[in-house]
């Protein structure tokens, strides 16, 4: 039975897409077939981390939502283009199938202007799982709360909620946790990202868990290497032995548990 994992944050810039790309890669390296859908139709971006050239992006999620093709036709097997440490091709036991959202202005504009049938997303996720024989499906969401986000949360087996140690994030996360509880999410995990290395991580974890009454999967330190990488590739593949990669592995382990 495939698992659906939604990666979400109340505010933008928390590191959702990077977390999603890293977890996707780490899970695929364990021999699983993994799908990742960019439902951030208004501001897509995860395809950049997977090294996808927009010019070669023939079809996108938008095409499926407009009825131009089946959802599996918008899936790109990105595993062969992934590199470890900038050179050797990462050996993927399974595979990664990316469903990007269109980066064309006209396509983004059409979605905003005309709306779309949200139920197609739910059907599309199930079709992807069945037709690509996926073990895991990751959903990279648009920040904040909207119809698509709520649906993604509602149909998830695991809800990964990412936040920074920041007062605005703390408040927004409280709202999102309440919403996730109303939608009966079976498993919710919090991830604190961009924590200053000088922080006491144990105390921070305890504080966050106590505030939201939900487990913290990991505290991720603000990493200069991650900033320097600037979304040019998947961090855990570029730096497989990095302490941050080790933290990503801890989260991946909890996702696969």
């Amino acid at each position: 039975m495939a698992k659906i994992i939604s990666v979400h944050s109340f505010r933008g810039g928390t590191g959702k897409s990077n977390l999603t790309a890293n977890l996707t890669s780490l899970v695929a390296q364990q021999g699983y077939r993994v799908g990742v859908v960019d439902t951030d139709i208004q501001s897509p971006g995860i395809h950049v981390i997977f090294g996808m050239d927009e010019e070669k992006m023939d079809k996108a999620l938008n095409d499926y939502l407009w009825g131009r093709c089946a959802i599996e036709d918008t899936a790109y097997d990105v595993s062969p283009v992934l590199k470890v440490d900038g050179g050797e091709v990462a050996v993927m036991g399974g595979g990664i199938y990316l469903i990007p959202s269109s980066i064309k202005v006209g396509e983004i504009a059409r979605i905003l202007r005309e709306g779309y049938d949200v139920s197609l997303l739910n059907d599309g996720f199930q079709d992807l799982i069945n037709r690509l024989n996926l073990d895991y499906l990751f959903i990279d969401t648009h920040p904040g709360l909207n119809e698509e986000t709520l649906l993604s949360i509602a149909i998830s087996d695991i809800f990964l909620l990412i936040l920074r140690p920041d007062q605005q994030d703390f408040q927004g996360t409280a709202v999102t946790v309440e919403v996730a509880r109303k939608l009966d999410v079976p498993k919710m995990l919090l991830v604190v990202n961009k924590a200053l290395p000088s922080f006491d991580f144990t105390a921070l974890k305890k504080q966050v868990e106590s505030t939201y009454q939900a487990p913290v999967a990991a505290i991720l330190p603000l990493s200069e290497d991650m900033v320097r990488l600037a979304s040019k590739s998947v961090f855990s593949l570029t730096y497989p032995d990095h302490p941050l990669t080790q933290r990503y592995r801890e989260i991946a382990k909890q996702v696969m548990a």
Binding site: L112, R113, G115, Y116, D117, V118, S119, N122
Partner: peptide
């Protein structure tokens, strides 16, 4: 599920 409405722009 109800369709997502467009924005009147």
């Amino acid at each position: 599920i109800a369709p997502r409405r467009g924005r009147p722009i």
